[in-house]
């Protein structure tokens, strides 16, 4: 029973190759709200399976599998140009780390909060994807670069969302990664740090190909001020929640 639950959970807290299902599903959904719902609910189903089934994931094989899955998707993020797929791969790289955290036998609340912390950045990237697609017809990096010049507000949102995707301080991903690392073995810790490095590399490449560089592409309207404030508010809430959740300690 436990083995079956773990296999089932591997689809929702995606471990390769079960992760292919989530990525196909994410790519197939066109409606923005449906895609957002998928990103928020999908990993929580995996957490629910672990919690309700009282599964305590353990063992070096599962830890290695989760770390390699995270590495695999982080590495592939480097060359993904469609921002929606990029967000899905970020999620596929971040959610396997939930397994590593679950191995430290945290409380149910902590496990749910950790998963949400790992979901925040992909969700923000989905918002970026929709904002880009609405203005530039497609959310492909490298297609319309140099947005900082004409669309400063949208560029600001892209920058902040990407910083969250890189799990930089003070975003929840930073503290979540520290929480995983504090209980990890040396080999797993090195793997997680490599994932972190790849996220940074992929994020910087995304910024280079959207925000920075010479302006190219059609003329588009910037993000309205009210929307910018709303997104800023959302980001403040995410950061504050992350800070509160860590409670001042690892």
């Amino acid at each position: 029973m436990t083995g079956l639950l773990i296999i089932l959970a591997a689809f929702f807290l995606p471990l390769f190759p079960a992760s292919l299902v989530f990525n196909r599903l994410a790519a197939g959904i066109d409606h923005p709200m449906a895609r957002l719902a998928l990103f928020v609910i999908w990993p929580q189903i995996g957490v629910a399976l672990l919690v309700w089934g009282d599964v305590a994931p353990a063992g070096p094989v599962l830890a290695t599998w989760a770390t390699l899955s995270a590495l695999f998707y982080a590495f592939r993020m480097l060359t993904v140009r469609e921002v929606g797929r990029w967000a899905a791969m970020l999620a596929s790289s971040a959610w396997p780390l939930v397994w590593l955290f679950a191995m430290q036998a945290p409380s149910e609340v902590a496990l749910v909060a950790f998963t949400l912390a790992m979901t925040a950045a992909p969700v923000l990237m989905l918002l970026v994807r929709d904002a880009l697609a609405r203005r530039l017809e497609a959310a492909y990096t490298g297609l319309h670069g140099g947005l900082a010049r004409d669309l400063p507000r949208l560029s600001g949102v892209i920058v902040v969302a990407t910083l969250a995707a890189m799990a930089l301080p003070l975003f929840p991903g930073f503290f979540a990664l520290l929480a995983v690392l504090s209980g990890a073995t040396l080999s797993v810790a090195i793997g997680v740090l490599l994932v972190w490095l790849l996220w940074s590399w992929a994020g910087a490449r995304l910024l280079q190909a959207t925000v920075f560089g010479p302006r190219s592409g059609p003329i588009a309207a910037d993000l309205p001020l009210s929307t910018t404030w709303m997104v800023a508010g959302l980001i403040v809430v995410i950061v504050a929640a992350g800070l509160l959740w860590t409670g001042g300690a690892v």
């Binding site: 140099g146 740090l193 490095l197 940074s200 280079q208 925000v211 560089g213 302006r215």
Partner: peptide
């Protein structure tokens, strides 16, 4: 200066090296 490709290229180098140093 967000536009010159060379400035972006070397800012990127710096960032990646610093990330290598962070971890």
């Amino acid at each position: 200066n967000t536009e010159p490709p060379t400035a972006q290229r070397y800012a990127f180098w710096t960032f990646i090296t610093y990330r290598l140093g962070d971890l």
